[in-house]
């Protein structure tokens, strides 16, 4: 019945090149550059069928929001968020998230999202209020009170002797060590295998608990870039947000006071990651403990080195210096061989 703004919803069918081009052109006018992982997009159109507002999703994150200036205050964003949230829920993701510039956080709070954490530049919101704390609390045990509790986040792509060493060193410094394995399937080694290898490779350490990282680890892969400007440093924004989410939402629920990271002098991104942690965590009473990587042949043992060697033709047996037995064994299995094969294909 609204007489003045007669906006119709129109889904943008991304499989139709003409429609996708229309969406991209609209985003371009708003200086937004979408990633290629969009699975759904929807828009509001005027009487002339022109896009005047749009939003998109990859099934877990809502993104690529753009609303024409003259529509501000018409709740266009609310309608888009509504449709996109419904889409995510139909895809089985009941707690879709939004990463947005901090000044836009209240806009999404008005649409039913709750802020998990924010930095000066960006914020993370989720659909289930307190979802992050509830996620973490599930890993709490009744006798945790009064204990020294630490955490590690790792991708383990795949699990190496370097990871094993890091876990051992950290576990020795606390009563309980939570190990979160990054949960996203953009790595060469699928999440289920990475998690299983970390679990098996640390099962002898009684005080280590291995968990899926859930949606609360803001990795390079999950951090949306559509709203970035050329002057933005994506790595700083992503790693600071990740540190904030950990410190504000995950750590308090588990009383984590120690966060362990491996030093990585050769990788700029990991270095930035550690620097962001160092900036953020102490503000929340969490101490960052850097543990030097162990070396083999004067090079730090790292998963990227393992992947490089595998893709260059090394056999799992030849990597015995770098890999714990569980990983070597997995690489010999049929699934492991397939992964090595695909590594060599994409080299």
């Amino acid at each position: 019945m609204d007489m003045e703004t007669n906006l119709q919803r129109r889904d943008i069918l991304l499989t139709i090149p003409r429609e996708k081009a229309e969406l991209l052109a609209f985003l371009e006018r708003h200086h937004l550059h979408p990633e290629d992982d969009l699975t759904y997009a929807t828009a509001l159109v005027n009487d002339e069928d022109e896009i005047v507002a749009c939003g998109a999703s990859n099934g877990r994150l809502l993104k690529c929001f753009a609303v024409n200036e003259d529509l501000r205050g018409c709740n266009a964003l609310g309608r888009l968020v509504n449709d996109l949230t419904t889409y995510c829920m139909q895809q089985g993701c009941f707690n879709p998230m939004v990463v947005t510039r901090t000044h836009n956080v209240p806009l999404f709070e008005n649409c039913g999202f709750s802020c998990v954490a924010q930095t000066e530049q960006v914020g993370l919101l989720e659909r289930i209020p307190g979802g992050a704390a509830r996620f973490a609390a599930a890993f709490r045990q009744s006798d945790d009170a009064g204990k020294i509790i630490g955490a590690i986040v790792m991708n383990a792509n795949p699990f190496t002797k370097g990871h094993r060493y890091l876990v051992e060193q950290a576990a020795a410094q606390c009563d309980v060590l939570h190990v979160f394995v990054v949960e996203e399937d953009r790595s060469v080694f699928p999440f289920a295998h990475r998690l299983a290898l970390v679990e098996q490779g640390t099962s002898d350490l009684a005080n280590v608990r291995v968990h899926p990282g859930g949606p609360y680890i803001i990795s390079q892969a999950t951090f949306p870039r559509y709203f970035l400007k050329e002057t933005d440093d994506a790595a700083v924004m992503q790693t600071e947000l990740d540190a904030q989410v950990f410190a504000r939402a995950i750590a308090p629920a588990l009383n984590i006071t120690l966060r362990f990271v491996g030093t990585e002098p050769n990788c700029g991104l990991t270095d930035q990651y550690n620097r962001s942690m160092q900036t953020v965590l102490p503000q929340y009473g969490i101490r960052l403990v850097e543990i030097p990587r162990i070396e083999s042949g004067e090079q730090a043992i790292s998963a990227s080195r393992v992947r490089a060697l595998l893709s260059q033709g090394s056999s799992p047996e030849e990597l015995g210096e770098l890999l714990p037995p569980v990983t070597t064994e997995f690489l010999r299995s049929e699934e492991g061989r397939e992964i090595i094969h695909s590594l060599r294909q994409t080299k």
């Binding site: 709740n75 609310g78 309608r79 968020v81 509504n82 949230t85 419904t86 829920m89 009941f94 707690n95 008005n110 649409c111 039913g112 659909r127 289930i128 509830r134």
Partner: peptide
């Protein structure tokens, strides 16, 4: 048994979401 949402974010409406706990 499952998360559920009803209602919209439009004026004069309320969006209710229920999640298992």
């Amino acid at each position: 048994k499952q998360p559920a949402v009803a209602g919209t974010l439009e004026s004069s409406d309320i969006q209710v979401s229920i999640f298992p706990n």
